[in-house]
Structure formats: structure tokens, C-alpha cells
């Protein structure tokens, strides 16, 4: 297993009030993304655990593109990867960001 930690600065904090959201499944070609609002508002971290080693630069590129587009400040994304392609990773990250930005509060 390879673990990667990517720490980025987000220009805007994530909207909404949810504390956490989870999307996806650790199946073949898919991944699960757990989003948790646990960081300072300008921080965004991605913690990736994957059995497919050697793709650090690709993860970096997808993560930078995602944070640039969505700016989910204050959110840590924890990823368990089942061998997803970069486009699936981008979609799951966007889904997790959208879900945690919903208005329904976490109790």
C-alpha cells in the first residue's frame, strides 16, 4: 500500500455546515472519499491510501485541480482507493465537496 498526503491552501472555506460526508465504494476502479470539516478554514488536505503505487504526480495534479475549482477550505479528504482512474477520482472528490456543503447541519 502507498500512502500520500497532499496539503494545499484553499482560497475560500467550504460552504455549508455539515461536519462530514462520505461517497463512493472501495470497489474495482472506484474509491471512497471521506470528507471531514476538521482543518483551519484556509487549509485543504488529501490523505490517500492506494494499492496502486507510483502515481503520486497524477494524484497531485488531480488534487490541485480540484482545490482550484471547488476551494473546499477547512476540509480533510481521506481516500481509500480501489484503483480508480483520475476522472473518477475528480468526480468523487467533487461529489464529496458538494455533499459536505449542503445546508443540513450535523448533530
Amino acid at each position: 500500500m502507498e500512502t500520500l498526503t497532499i496539503q494545499l491552501q484553499a482560497p475560500q472555506p467550504a460552504r455549508g455546515r455539515r461536519a462530514m460526508a462520505i461517497v463512493g465504494v472501495v470497489g474495482s476502479g472506484d474509491l471512497e472519499v471521506l470528507a471531514e470539516r476538521v482543518l483551519a478554514a484556509e487549509e485543504c488536505h488529501l490523505e490517500i491510501s492506494t494499492a496502486i503505487a507510483g502515481f503520486g504526480p497524477v494524484w497531485q495534479a488531480v488534487a490541485r485541480d480540484f482545490v482550484e475549482r471547488r476551494s473546499p477550505g477547512g476540509v480533510r479528504f481521506s481516500i481509500n482507493d480501489g484503483g480508480a482512474r483520475p476522472d473518477i477520482v475528480a468526480i468523487r472528490l467533487a461529489q464529496a465537496a458538494r455533499l459536505i456543503e449542503e445546508d443540513q447541519p450535523c448533530t
Binding site: R18, A19, M20, A21, I22, V23, G24, V25, Q95, R98, L99, E102, Q104, C106, T107
Partner: peptide, 14 residues
């Protein structure tokens, strides 16, 4: 114990 707030795809709510 936490509230459910999940979805496997974009349709997390109804």
C-alpha cells in the same frame, strides 16, 4: 454516533 449524510453517487438525498 453520527447522523447519516452519505451517498454513493450524486443522489445523496431524494
Amino acid at each position: 454516533v453520527s447522523r447519516a449524510e452519505s451517498g454513493g453517487d450524486p443522489v445523496g438525498s431524494r
